[in-house]
Design a protein around this nucleic acid. Structure first.
Lengths: 231, 231
DNA sequence: TAGATTGTTAATCGATTAACAATC
DNA sequence: TAGATTGTTAATCGATTAACAATC
């Protein structure tokens, strides 16, 4: 790859980014998470082999993935954990804290609002919205009080937030997504079990535990009570 | 494909299952979720084209994926929603309710224990464990009281449970996984931000919102406050 | 019948891996 | 130097898609 010692122009960086397979980008956060863990263990260097063993993937894949972005390792030694970590943070743009808004203040919304694992990995929930009048005004974290959904537009303009999380029931999710998009959100993490319809410039990722569970039951021997059918 | 009208023997089914790409299996729950939605809308038939449009994937992919399992559609018409739904439930083995145990009774554990979206999609949390003495004995749902982690072995023997969910802090997750594996669990859904080390016969899937958020920030223009670095 | 859509084939496209020269 | 490990190439492997005969 040409991108070595002299870093290219901002335009060239954008172009290079566009050519990197999305599946590769998707693995970088996992590499980063592992490096954070190893840093916590006091490890100073890590080989692609060791990383691969920890993650259950091949060392070749790790080296190839990283090679899209530069040369971060040293022959005979491996990768400096702290250095590679900083590089990945930069590549993923999490060498800072992104403000995030959350819609939905039910059990899940509460869990997300009080989760303390966001901040040191680049994210901070700065506002929580709900449509239930009974919830508006409730404090969901030391610094956050639930606002009405109708306030999304105004609040988003103030905090310049590009990321939204949706933790409302499936029936309400599309409307919430429309509101977020209207307010200028560019990325949505959707916990509602539904595929959202959004314009092309908005990226959506999904978290639905049942999807994962159903993926796993395919491989299990049927051991559940067949008498009790769902729905 | 040979598997058409006469269904093959149980052995042949197992063999066929083994040859189906995991990535295909992973999309079936998404198809099923969409069919449930369409059934709720009163839709009776759906073409691969329509399903694809809703999910943002090609109609060819949907037809190809389904063709691994049989012929479920009708030329000129498409798929009968209720029929295809039943078939997918059968293939994924969610035409019944699987018991699931949950370890971790923090905010997230509570949210999972009270989530009412599991049951009609094939899963029921039947026990919740925590290591914090202050939490043991607490009621987390109408039918569930938090038990000590030390009770996992015994409880699992009683409920014949093959699936576990981990919602404990990262530092505690590996030990919990070891305990679950020891107790005979075959599938783990892990919410802790860590890659677990488990024997080959145990399947693990992960849910970590930060992984998704970091995947998305790669594509955003840096808009977060660069002064406030994480960690 | 005419129009629509399936299931399947073959071609294309893309991702993973094995292997190795370079080099620390 | 000898051993280890990188970054990269080329080969392999697998997944997606376009196209179409079959047929409802």
């Amino acid at each position: 790859m040409a991108t070595k010692l002299n870093w290219p122009s901002a335009d060239a960086v954008s172009a290079a980014r566009a050519n990197i397979p999305d599946i590769v980008v998707g693995r970088l956060p996992v590499y980063l998470r592992t490096l954070e863990l190893m840093a916590g263990e006091g490890r100073e260097v890590a080989s692609s082999q060791e990383l691969g063993a920890r993650l259950g993937i091949s060392s070749a894949q790790i080296r190839k993935d990283l090679s899209h972005f530069g040369e971060f390792g040293k022959q005979g030694t491996g990768y400096n954990v702290a250095f590679l970590r900083r590089q990945l943070e930069q590549i993923l743009k999490v060498n800072c804290v992104w403000p995030v808004v959350l819609v939905g203040a039910g059990y899940l919304g509460h869990a997300l609002a009080s989760y303390n694992g966001f901040e040191h990995r680049g994210f901070r929930i700065v506002a929580v919205f709900d449509s239930d009048p009974a919830k508006i005004g409730n404090r969901v974290s030391p610094s956050i009080v639930v606002e009405p959904v109708s306030a999304i537009g105004e609040t988003l303009q103030r905090c310049q937030c590009q990321i939204g999380m949706i933790a409302v029931p499936a029936e309400a999710a599309q409307k919430v997504a429309d509101t977020l998009v209207e307010a200028g959100i560019r990325s949505i993490l959707c916990y509602a079990p539904i595929t959202l319809n959004v314009p092309a410039h908005v990226r959506v990722e999904y978290i639905d535990p049942v999807i994962h569970l159903q993926h796993m039951t395919f491989y299990l021997r049927q051991g559940c009570d067949e008498g009790s059918a769902p729905s």
